[in-house]
Write a protein that binds this DNA or RNA. Structure first.
Lengths: 114, 114
DNA sequence: TTTGACCTTGCCATCGATGTCAGCCCCTAA
DNA sequence: TTAGGGGCTGACATCGATGGCAAGGTCAAA
């Protein structure tokens, strides 16, 4: 399918689909004219990308994680790398949550102290 | 005092002090030469700005909040506006924390599900 | 008087996902 | 053949706190 259809079917702008490709997240064939052509799997891939972005991962991290998520690696070495990466992200998120909570506490202090 | 001294005494770069002034957070007189001149209060103000920034507020919000924090308004109307603003910020922070927690949960799903 | 430290303004860069626009190519239906 | 709807690339803008640099003015000490 062409980029317009993929955009319509995923709700992601064509601009972003090209961006994901530039970031190495999404593959696209090319027609005899230069048009990108996507197969059905692309719809799934785009949804996975959106989910991972929504989970707060950067495109850089997603680029590492995606081949594992898509099951493109031999089963037995699955997860090892992925697990490390995601665990690192989880730790970073926990840190961010803690920071936010500390900030929230500091801010609440401005409200109650005076 | 000149900007360099204020910078040294607060640990905030001169570049940032000028930025805070441009954002309407920090007042400075001007000497006969164009040099900025600060009074002692500036040290306190800068610390307050840093504390509020550290609490996650934007310079825009701080601009609204600061006159209240500095007690430059009549006592009886104190807090009303400030309270609203800070409470809005607290709610926004709670929302951000919730988002992060949801994201964290989604991410953890990628780890445990397979 | 010269040197050197300090000040001024103004502009550019950062980071990352995303929007938007210009200029041009391709294809199909009327 | 033409109009219109795709698609292509490349470039620029956004947001916000901050860093950094350049060109030039000011002042004090040597």
């Amino acid at each position: 399918m062409l980029i317009g259809e993929l955009s319509r079917r995923t709700g992601v702008s064509a601009r972003l689909l090209r961006y994901y490709e530039a970031q190495g997240l999404l593959d696209a064939g090319r027609g005899t004219n230069g048009y990108r052509s996507y197969d059905e799997d692309a719809v799934v891939t785009v949804r996975q990308i959106r989910a991972l972005l929504g989970a707060g991962l950067s495109t850089e991290v997603i680029r590492e994680v995606l081949p594992c998520v898509r099951g493109e690696r031999p089963e037995f070495e699955w997860c090892a790398e992925l697990w490390d990466v995601l665990n690192g992200e989880l730790a970073a998120m926990d840190a961010r949550i803690d920071d936010l909570r500390r900030s929230r506490g500091a801010l609440a202090g401005f409200l109650t102290r005076p």
